[in-house]
Every structure is written in C-alpha cells, then in structure tokens.
Measured scan of single mutants.
Amino acid sequence: TEEFVRLWREAVRHNQTLHWNGTDFIPGDEWAEEFARREEEKL
C-alpha cells in the first residue's frame, strides 16, 4: 500500500525496523527489500 511504502522509506532512511501487520520489515533484509520493491511497483 501507499502507506506501507511511505513508512518503509522512512524506516530505511533512519535504518529502523518497520513493524507492519505483525511483521518486522528490516532495512537490508533481502525478503523485506523484495516485498517493498513489489509494493512500490504497484503504485
């Protein structure tokens, strides 16, 4: 979602874990980066 992408970019900028829907998205984590890339492509 647009909100997820916005929060993810913020988390990456501050190198912080994003807690989203009970899942931890960690900047630099391969799975999280791939998920975020797919979400961005949907926008």
Rank of each mutant, 00 (worst) to 15 (best):
T1V: 13
T1R: 14
T1G: 14
T1W: 14
T1S: 14
E2N: 11
E2Y: 10
E2I: 11
E2P: 09
E3D: 13
E3W: 07
E3A: 11
F4P: 00
V5P: 00
V5R: 03
R6N: 12
R6V: 08
R6K: 13
R6Y: 13
R6W: 11
L7Q: 12
W8D: 07
W8G: 05
R9M: 08
R9K: 14
R9Y: 12
E10F: 04
A11R: 00
A11C: 15
A11F: 02
V12T: 05
V12S: 05
V12P: 00
R13T: 11
R13Y: 13
R13N: 10
H14N: 15
H14W: 10
N15T: 06
N15Y: 05
N15M: 10
N15R: 10
Q16T: 14
Q16Y: 11
T17E: 04
T17Q: 05
T17Y: 04
T17M: 10
L18G: 01
L18S: 00
L18Y: 00
L18F: 08
L18V: 06
H19M: 04
H19V: 09
H19Q: 09
H19D: 04
H19S: 11
W20F: 11
W20H: 03
W20S: 01
W20M: 03
N21V: 04
N21A: 11
N21E: 11
G22A: 05
G22I: 02
T23F: 15
D24T: 11
D24H: 05
F25D: 00
F25H: 07
F25R: 00
I26E: 09
D29F: 04
D29G: 02
E30H: 11
E30D: 13
E30N: 10
E30G: 10
E30F: 11
W31H: 06
W31S: 05
W31N: 06
W31C: 15
W31V: 08
W31E: 07
W31K: 09
W31A: 10
W31L: 06
A32M: 03
A32G: 03
A32R: 01
A32N: 02
A32I: 03
A32Q: 01
E33A: 06
E33T: 05
E33W: 05
E34N: 12
E34K: 07
E34V: 03
F35A: 05
F35R: 06
F35W: 09
F35N: 03
A36N: 02
R37M: 09
R37C: 14
R37H: 08
R38H: 12
R38F: 09
R38N: 12
E39R: 07
E39P: 01
E39T: 15
E39W: 13
E39A: 15
E39Q: 15
E40M: 15
E40A: 12
E40V: 13
E40S: 10
E41Q: 14
E41H: 11
E41Y: 10
E41F: 09
E41W: 08
K42W: 07
K42Y: 06
K42R: 11
K42H: 06
K42M: 07
L43S: 05
